[in-house]
Design a binder for these strands. Structure first.
Lengths: 152, 152
DNA sequence: TCCGGTTCATTGTAGATACAACTTAAGCAT
DNA sequence: ATGCTTAAGTTGTATCTACAATGAACCGGA
């Protein structure tokens, strides 16, 4: 006989099993780490991620960046807008539009190189927090979600 | 001789090694999963997490919830405000103030039980996406970050 | 060539997130 | 009792995030 699950049982199971609560907590902690390291340069972790993604793509179309990082296109649009305002990236055509490509400006390229030491610092701290196993597991999970695969 | 690291090398290393980019990507994918499952009930994953946390604490003080989920106090303040507006939680004293406690309303308790099937569905999908190993690793990492430990 | 569906990018709206600054209350020490 | 220091909570501001709706350009087939 299945009986109705009580509030306490439900809450208990959710707290002890929920994948989302853990992923989100880890995300907040790790992001805070990188954000702090990058703060002197005026960019956030999200922007750094985009900067790197764009730097690696020969002709970065927004839709492509959006897919590779699993960021909603509208989110990316606004993030890129901020990065344009800071003159770290530019697009061709400059007004945007359909088949635009995004690339780093010289300042953006300089920034990328400049933030590297801070990134290494945050990276080292993150490794300490999550451990070797954690790092490997994240790599595995991200790969499983298609990250790092040359576009579908 | 160490030579200067080029933009491409920097970008490449960051993309291939960065913990943050992976954590954040996984977070977006997983959160989207739970958000979609919970959408019919009008609450987001973040709110569900808080709902569960509050349900499990006898006398949930905001600062305590904030610490246990590693959410900034100001963030929690606004999340709770929304949840009050939906009458899922209430506080005593009702206007907030310093030593308030938060608890679920009867509607909040009903909601918690109601969302369980949707949560189970999202949970199952999440397991499929990240795998047994991923789940175990997340549990390990979160535990390492103090999640699940009875308050410091 | 034109039509219709699809993809792409932006804008409207709403919530999640955090840092800084501020207000207030609690705890402590004398 | 009376201050002092610290913790708690809120508010201002900015960014990140996504869904929905819109407009525009691409791409196939008739």
């Amino acid at each position: 006989m299945e009986r109705k699950l009580s509030k306490q049982e439900t809450a208990g199971r959710m707290a002890h099993e929920c994948i989302a609560v853990r992923v989100r907590l880890i995300n907040r902690v790790i992001t805070a780490l990188y954000d702090e390291a990058l703060r002197p340069y005026g960019l956030r972790t999200s922007q750094a991620n985009i900067l790197v993604a764009v730097a690696l793509m020969a002709k970065a179309r927004p839709a492509e960046v959006s897919r590779s990082l699993r960021i909603e296109k509208s989110t990316l649009s606004r993030d890129v807008e901020l990065m344009k305002r800071n003159a770290w990236v530019e697009s061709d055509p400059p007004n945007g539009g359909r088949s635009q490509t995004i690339r780093l400006t010289p300042q953006g390229q300089k920034l990328l190189v400049k933030i590297r030491p801070s990134w290494e610092k945050a990276q080292a701290e993150a490794k300490l927090l999550i451990g070797e196993d954690g790092e490997a597991a994240l790599r595995q999970m991200a790969s499983r979600l298609g990250f790092g695969t040359p576009a579908s």
